[in-house]
Computed example of a mutant assay.
Amino acid sequence: MCNATRDIMDCMFEVHSEILGDVDDIPQTNEPVWILGKRYNAIQDLYQIRQDIISKLWFTYRKNFVPIGGSEGYTTDKGWGCMLRCGQMVLAQALINFHLGRDWLWEPDSRDSAYLKILKKFEDKRGAPFSIHQIAAMGETEGKAIGQWFGPNTVAQVLKKLIKFDSGNQIVIHVALDNTVVISNIRDLCCVSVTDSIKIDWKPLLLVVPLRLGLSEINSVYIKGLKKCFQFKQSLGVIGGKPNLALYFIGYVGNEVIYLDPHLTQRSGSVDNKLTDESKELDASYHCKYASRMSILEMDPSVAVCFFCPSESDFIDLCQNIKDKLIEEEKQPLFEVIYEMPTEWLITSDSVATGSDIAGGSQESDKDEFEIL
């Protein structure tokens, strides 16, 4: 079957399914649906839920791009780039929240210049600051050869390095150590003196907290806390997946998590200024019409919880919510928040996450990266 015929049949099937109501992306339930800090009613707000989901930048496998790793390198990331794509989705959402706002919605014919500028940063080109090329190359500094799977911690560490090279960028990334968010470390990173220490400015923060929530499967004691993270207004979701399959989790309903799946191979190309039908079609390929969902118990226990704090007040509010809803209310908190790093900790690197990364197929050790005296 030729590609054109297959595309036509796929389109006919999609339209037919919609007419018959066969699309099962969001269950018809009275339980609340949470998408990155927003609460919806599945029955009353189905259209709004789908508009919210389709507005997220959806990065998937691509093919036929400029080779990664030299002329004989990879021209597709199929089979190895799923966690790299999930990292792109988290960072892209942070940029959209900062430059366009959490309530911004994508439209097929929109040519918003701020949106197009963000999208260009992730195109499959060597020169794009957050392209698959840049992420894969920077991964070598984390011990990952090009073409090797990443885990949640690795992709967070790579993005933390790359964002420093993005000209004009204002966002900073902090990757929390050892299940602990240290407030003073983040303030040192985000608070900048503008004029002789008279005025303090805040750099927008993308906070990533790598966690290990079980051995081979998620311990049910963590489920309630993980759900609460999606409820915070600062939520940027969770990067993780199933064993050997990385996914970007953006919300939940009941005991199921809602996610965007990068495991679809699409053609690469440039949207440019979105002036042609071809560029509009390519732009649409960066937006998933229907999210998927699965039981939260099916998630791999290696995850990274992500938050975005555009202002200091947002960060203070996040810390208070973590304290009130994740620490004091939970018998087994997901992670801790403290003001100062304990003096007995000798930090040799802040590129540590407790446990090893399984999602995406990688096995990562932190045994040599910090020492407790």
Rank of each mutant, 00 (worst) to 15 (best):
E330T: 03
P301T: 05
A291P: 09
K280M: 07
S220V: 09
E107V: 09
I296D: 08
D272V: 02
D366M: 10
D52P: 02
D277T: 13
G254P: 11
A128I: 04
L189K: 06
F232H: 07
E340L: 09
S285W: 06
S365W: 10
S131Y: 05
F335G: 03
K233G: 09
K228Y: 12
D350Q: 14
P27Y: 04
A156M: 05
K224F: 09
T29K: 14
K144A: 10
K203L: 01
A92K: 07
A114R: 13
V352S: 01
Q320P: 04
Q134P: 08
L177E: 15
S292P: 03
E330L: 04
K242D: 10
M299C: 15
L326K: 05
H99S: 14
K120H: 14
V238Q: 02
Y61C: 04
I218E: 01
K228N: 12
I316H: 09
S110W: 00
C82W: 05
E340A: 07
I316K: 11
T343W: 02
K323Q: 14
S362H: 11
I258T: 00
D201L: 10
P243I: 06
G70Y: 02
K227C: 01
D261L: 04
D166K: 12
C191P: 06
G70N: 01
N185M: 04
G151L: 01
D24N: 13
D52L: 00
D324E: 15
E369C: 09
K242L: 15
S71E: 11
T141C: 13
Q234Y: 02
D7N: 13
T180G: 07
V155M: 03
K199T: 13
A137Q: 09
S270F: 05
C319W: 08
V253Y: 02
C309K: 03
N169M: 11
T75A: 04
S55Y: 07
I322K: 08
N219T: 13
I43T: 14
M1K: 09
R6Y: 11
Q234T: 12
L318H: 03
P310M: 04
I135R: 04
E336R: 15
P67S: 12
S220M: 07
I8F: 14
P108D: 04
V182C: 13
I322S: 12
I223T: 14
K233M: 07
D366V: 12
E31V: 12
S285H: 09
V221H: 04
F98R: 15
D109V: 04
Y47P: 10
A176S: 15
G361W: 03
S365E: 06
E340Q: 12
L297M: 13
D77A: 08
F370R: 09
C309S: 09
R102H: 07
G81S: 07
M294R: 13
I316E: 13
D201V: 06
C11R: 11
V172I: 06
L260S: 02
A156N: 06
I223E: 11
S292Y: 05
I316P: 00
I171P: 08
M12G: 08
G251L: 00
E281W: 06
D166S: 15
G127R: 08
D317Y: 05
T354G: 10
L116E: 03
K274V: 12
G241C: 06
A246W: 05
A176V: 05
I218W: 01
